[in-house]
């Protein structure tokens, strides 16, 4: 088992307590309870539509729980007013499913978006953008390009840089390394592990890929139809699957090899 870092005694940055969430009649999350530990990478996996994105949006208040509570940095998200919610979101790095870069802003202005909201001074913001570009392995020349002038992999790196801009202690990543080829994906995964080693943020990482979930996660959360099927370190998921569903998931990698 990998070392679950984070200072001793630090409270869990995210706590779900008996959360139910629904858009229509069918619950999307059903008595969902979870504590995410400080400094860990928690990878979340499950079939399309099982509620992964919804669980992530409950953390930053883009979705609301019908019952139960979600507590982030000790604040109950559902009880926050608009101003407090904005303040909370500015402490959380967010990489959305599909990147969502701002098409009308240059790479620079995309990266420093949150800093610009806080009116950070220009030269400082440029320095910051440059160092972040370096951090995610992109050349400084890209600073003045627009998103449509980037490759898919470059866009995902910029998305990551944007989420890291204000040195968040918590990162929410929704299939951040989606539409890229295998080699680029592996590079991005290595990049993320390196960043995590150095900065130690807590990361809530959603993926479709069981290989990615097992490779990146300090713990892996397997979801099925809005419920937690199994939660544990990668080795445990692989060696002691709690159900046929989990076994089928891990079996898919063996077929690949």
């Amino acid at each position: 088992m990998k070392n679950l870092a984070g200072a001793a005694g630090e409270p869990p940055p995210i706590i779900f307590r008996e959360v139910t969430a629904a858009y229509g009649a069918e619950p999307v999350l059903d008595s969902f309870s979870l504590e995410v530990l400080p400094g860990e990478i928690l990878t979340v996996i499950g079939h399309s539509g099982c509620g992964k994105t919804t669980s992530l949006k409950l953390i930053n208040g883009l979705a609301r729980a019908q019952s139960g509570s979600v507590t982030v940095f000790g604040q109950e998200v559902g009880a926050l007013g608009p101003k407090q919610l904005i303040a909370l979101r500015r402490r959380i790095g967010y990489v959305i499913q599909g990147v969502g870069l701002f098409p009308h802003l240059t790479v620079w202005k995309n990266i420093t978006y949150v800093l610009d909201l806080l009116r950070e001074e220009r030269e400082q913001s440029r320095q910051k953008a440059l160092s972040l570009l370096g951090l995610v392995g992109l050349e400084p020349e890209l600073l003045r390009r627009f998103p449509r002038e980037l490759s898919g992999g470059q866009r995902q790196r910029v998305g990551l840089a944007r989420a890291l801009a204000f040195s968040p202690r918590l990162l929410l990543m929704d299939e951040p390394f989606g539409a890229v080829d295998g080699i680029t994906r592996a590079q991005l995964q290595r990049l993320l592990l390196g960043l995590h080693r150095d900065l130690r943020p807590t990361i809530y990482f959603i993926t479709h890929d069981i290989g990615e979930a097992l490779a990146l996660g300090d713990r892996v959360l397997v979801m099925r139809r809005g419920r937690i099927e199994q939660l544990g370190p990668p080795a445990e998921i692989r060696e002691r699957p709690a159900s046929d569903y989990v076994r089928q998931l891990t079996d898919t990698i063996i077929y690949k090899k």
Binding site: I86, R89, I96, V99, G100, F102, H104, V114, L117, L172
Partner: peptide, 24 residues
């Protein structure tokens, strides 16, 4: 996706209008 990214990063309503919606 763009709107969601803007909201998720804590953009207040007026900044959303000036920085994201009107330019786009």
């Amino acid at each position: 996706d763009v709107m969601e990214a803007a909201a998720g990063m804590g953009t207040p309503p007026l900044a959303l209008l000036w920085r994201i919606q009107l330019p786009l």
